[in-house]
């Protein structure tokens, strides 16, 4: 296993009290890793430290086993794509792309070839002579990605590169980025606050909160087995109920679930909407009444009012909600429930 980027005990504190503490992270070669968290959680601080735009208070950053801490950004083997304002409006697309290559004293013919190739890769062939002002937001971000690719970085850093784009375009760009990544085999560190984006493109996700790491795992694992209450809240939709542990079982009213974490006392129980089962009035379960049924394409979201817990959301196959109507009495059961220590 090749470690391309290694962050060890990175700490950077701002005067305001924000920042990151004791971040350690190994990124394998060819891996796309996402730093995910709410704004102010320190994900951008980590990224900018890797790129050389911030000097950490302590810790170590190794790229291909060499420390880069003392290296200024222009000498680091990293390339960064920013959220916006990546391009230089007074230069054509060609000049924007060639800027870094000219500094590296690449030959003109080689440069032309590389630029034609990279424009083909991002499906923007023939736009060499345009100015950034003539491009749409999505095209500008593509050019920014292309410029970063041309630098042949050891690690590509992306700082919420698609967050300024509209939803449809964001989707397309994600797919394209994934494709580029599989073609080039680049190691990428991607920063986002959008959990859906993180789930869809990452090999692994680093969930961050308040300047520290909550969990590092694959999207599957983070979704199915969130380690902390924060990770459970932040990723995907979740219902939260209060329960207690008794006789080594997690109890919600008349329902009981296993207690693998050996928790005691009061607990918060997290349940994915797709793990909520709605049954007729006679079955065991929490009794509630259907509040609202929303058809969302191939599935439906049914919200059920369960006293004293409040609204529980559930996802149901569309053909199974036909017999449901609002106000109907139902029994709610769960196929899977995760317990966390109560806050």
């Amino acid at each position: 296993m090749d470690i391309q980027l290694s962050i060890q005990n990175l700490t950077k504190r701002y005067k305001t009290g924000d920042g990151v503490t004791d971040i350690s992270l190994d990124v394998r070669k060819g891996e796309l890793i996402t730093l995910l968290g709410p704004s102010g959680c320190g994900k951008t601080t980590v990224l900018r430290s890797i790129g050389g735009f911030l000097e950490p208070d302590s810790g170590e950053i190794l790229i291909e086993n060499k420390s880069v801490l003392k290296t200024p950004p222009e000498k680091r083997p990293t390339a960064m794509v920013f959220q916006s304002y990546n391009l230089w409006p007074h230069m054509t697309v060609y000049d924007n792309l060639a800027f870094g290559l000219k500094i590296r004293k690449m030959k003109k013919a080689e440069m032309d070839f590389a630029i034609t190739e990279v424009l083909k890769l991002i499906r923007m062939s023939g736009s060499e002579k345009k100015h950034p002002g003539e491009l749409s937001g999505g095209q500008q971000q593509r050019i920014a990605v292309a410029r970063a690719l041309l630098l042949k970085p050891a690690v590509l850093l992306l700082d919420e590169p698609f967050s300024a784009l509209d939803a449809k375009l964001r989707h397309e760009m994600r797919e394209e980025l994934r494709e580029i990544q599989s073609k080039t085999g680049l190691t990428m560190v991607f920063v986002t606050h959008d959990q859906e984006e993180a789930l869809s493109i990452s090999d692994r996700i680093v969930v961050m909160n308040h300047g520290h790491i909550e969990q590092i795992a694959s999207p599957q694992e983070i979704y199915d087995e969130p380690k902390s209450l924060f990770a459970a809240q932040f990723i995907g939709k979740m219902n939260f109920l209060k329960g207690v542990v008794s006789a080594d079982q997690v109890i919600i009213q008349n329902l009981a679930f296993p207690n693998p974490k050996r928790l005691t006392g009061e607990v918060s129980i997290a349940i994915r909407p797709e793990n909520v089962i709605l049954q007729d009035g006679e079955e065991t379960g929490l009794s509630g009444s259907v509040k609202q049924i929303m058809i969302l394409g191939h599935y439906a979201e049914v919200s059920v009012d369960v006293q004293p817990f409040g609204i529980i959301r559930s996802f149901q196959p569309r053909d199974q909600v036909k017999h449901l109507h609002s106000g109907q009495k139902v029994k709610v059961n769960f196929s899977k429930a995760l317990a966390f220590p109560a806050v």
Binding site: P73, T78, M80, F99, G100, I103, R147
Partner: peptide
């Protein structure tokens, strides 16, 4: 910063 990043 992009320009620094590109090697300038």
């Amino acid at each position: 910063e992009s320009a620094r990043d590109a090697g300038a």
